Structure formats: C-alpha cells, structure tokens
Amino acid sequence: MTDHPAYIASVGTALPGDPIGNEELAKRFGIDADWIEVFIGNRTRHFAVNLDDGEVLHTLADLAARAAGRALASSGVSPDDIGFIVMGTATPDALMPATVNLVADQLGLDHLPTYQLQSGCAGALQALDLGRTLITSGTHKAGLVIGGDVCTKHLPLGQDFAGLAPSELVNFVLFGDGAGAAVLTDEPIGARLSLLRVLNRLIGLGREPGQTVEWFGVADRDSGRQALKEDYKAIESTVPVMSSEILWELLDEQGWSEGDLHFLLPPQLSARMTERIVAELNMPSATEISCVADTGNTSNALPFMQMSRLVDRIEPGQKAIGIAVESSKWIKAGFALEKV
C-alpha cells in the first residue's frame, strides 16, 4: 500500500482540422463508403495532413501541447508546480529531438525531467503507469502525462488505391490523428479521479507482431516496403480475448464484482471491433465510454479522449475500468479509477 495516492485532476484533448466523413474519404481515395461503414464502422476522423498534397498541417508536438495546455488550464495546478512530463507515442515528429521536449518548449516548461515512451496503443497507459509511479513514490506532487499520434504522415497518399490489398487499404480509413493529456496530482483536486491501478504487461514472447510501422532513413526510403501493416485477422481474434483477461484481472485486483463497475472504457481499434468486444465482455451494469467512431483510431490519444468523456459523467463513489491492447508485440494494458 502506497502512502502517496495518485489522482487525475484534469484531462485535455486536441484534434486537427475538421472531421472527415466516409463519403469524403471514399471520394478522395476511390473507396466504397459502404465498405467503410460495414467493415470499420468509423463515421469520421481528423487528419493532420492535407489530403491533396500530403503537407503536414499539424505536428504531433502542436497537438500534444494544445491538449496539455487544456488539461493544465482546467486542473487547478500552476504550470510552475508541474514536476515532470511523460509522453507515449508511436509516431514522434522526429527521432531527435524527442517530441516531448518540443511540447515542453511550447508550454513554457523547463528544468524538469521529461520522458518519451515509444509504443503503440499501450503507450498512453505506459506513460500513465510511469507518471503514477512518480507521484506515488513521493518524488513529485504533480505532473503531465501525454499520449498522441499523427499516423497519416506514414500513409502515402499519391498512389493507386484501387490496387491496394485490404491489409493496406484499411489503414487509410481506420486511423485518425490527435493527442490527449492528463494532469496527475498527489491529492484529490479537479476531476478527483483516484488512479488505483495501471496494468502494463508484455505478453508477446515468441509471437509474430500484429502491427508494424516502418521508419525509413535516407538509405531505404525507396525500398518499396509497406509503411504501415496490420495482421487484421490476428488482431480480430486476439484482442477480444486479451480484453476479457485485462478486465477480470483489474476487477479481481480491486476486489470489485461485475455489479460494482459503473463505466467501461473498452479498446478503440474501430467502431465495429469495439461493438464486438463490449458484447463479449458482457458488463450490463457498466456504461460504455467510446469515441473511436467519431475520432478514428488515434492510437495513444484514445484513452485520454475516453477519459475526457468520463470526467463529465462519473459521480463520487463510482468506478471505471479502461482497457487498451497493443497488437504490435502484444501488450496488455488497463487502468482502474474511482471518483472520490
């Protein structure tokens, strides 16, 4: 038992540009809008790049700083009291400098430790895990945790989409760009969400990756390798099973029964996958908090986007569990919250 509990005081999010609907996407890429609706289920998404020429209009640092600024503004915590920044992302703006340090610069923060964790959908929760540890250890009284991704910069827009394999085509309709952030504190202020547990566990020993994002240097940028690749069948069969395991582990650890859970924040790969996972988890007492149908799969931003919706609904004494599964090398992640 720790002597220093950790709390989420506030959450902020940021999405680039206007939402792009399925009809606009279908027209731009020559994709059947009905196929997007039936197979993926996402209605809209936001892109940080110009779809006509691929120009980056919003960097990850821009979006992350905007989300973090909003979290700070509503937290009741002075920027001078922020003791650390932890950021999780799969798509940093550059290999160096670390994007987290560009975010700190935009926020006007200096003379504090910063950490950047390279990971997919579990990266936000890995960042939350580290942030919680820094608070509960008594090392810091407050800090910023950030998650975000700009996936579209990895997608080549000037190609013949009619000839793409489904495993590659799905990436153009599945993902969106965005960022989210939370202010963690050692006392209950603001949103007053007690961060009871963060689960973060690799289970990928000997297993093939379910998702790969390539990083090309000058020597291999024209290699012809697919930049972003998913084994959607493996993800479809594995993620629901892992989600159930995560949920029950967190319930058991907290000593909660099914009826004790008020809110469920399920994995957000796609709207269709989320529907399936929620049905299989079968938690009728818990209200689902999802956003992927409107935001697209924003990877490390998603848990914060779900939490931002939770903040406005959860009442004192109510409990919530969030689940995230990373398919790149199979990571179980989740968290347990209670409003105090």
Rank of each mutant, 00 (worst) to 15 (best):
A6T: 09
L63R: 03
L15N: 07
W248A: 05
S223F: 05
P5G: 06
T133P: 00
L130Q: 13
K339T: 05
L174W: 02
F172C: 13
T59E: 02
D105Y: 04
G123Y: 04
I277E: 00
R276N: 01
D62T: 04
L264A: 10
A191G: 03
E326R: 10
D312K: 15
E236L: 11
V325W: 03
L63M: 13
L57I: 07
M305L: 15
I235R: 02
R272V: 11
L250Q: 06
N101F: 10
V100F: 14
G217L: 09
L196V: 14
V170N: 02
D129G: 07
E37A: 15
F84T: 06
Q268N: 09
A122D: 01
S74W: 04
V198S: 05
L128A: 10
R309P: 00
L264V: 15
D160H: 11
P113M: 09
R225S: 11
T136V: 12
L164T: 08
A9C: 15
E315Y: 03
A64V: 02
T295G: 01
K27W: 00
V56R: 12
V150N: 01
Q254F: 11
L228T: 12
E245H: 03
G190P: 05
I8E: 01
W248L: 12
T185S: 14
V239F: 03
V183R: 10
T298E: 01
K329Q: 09
A279V: 00
D129W: 13
A26Q: 06
I323N: 04
P19C: 10
A14L: 00
L169Y: 01
T287Q: 15
G138H: 11
A227M: 13
A90H: 06
T91L: 01
L112I: 15
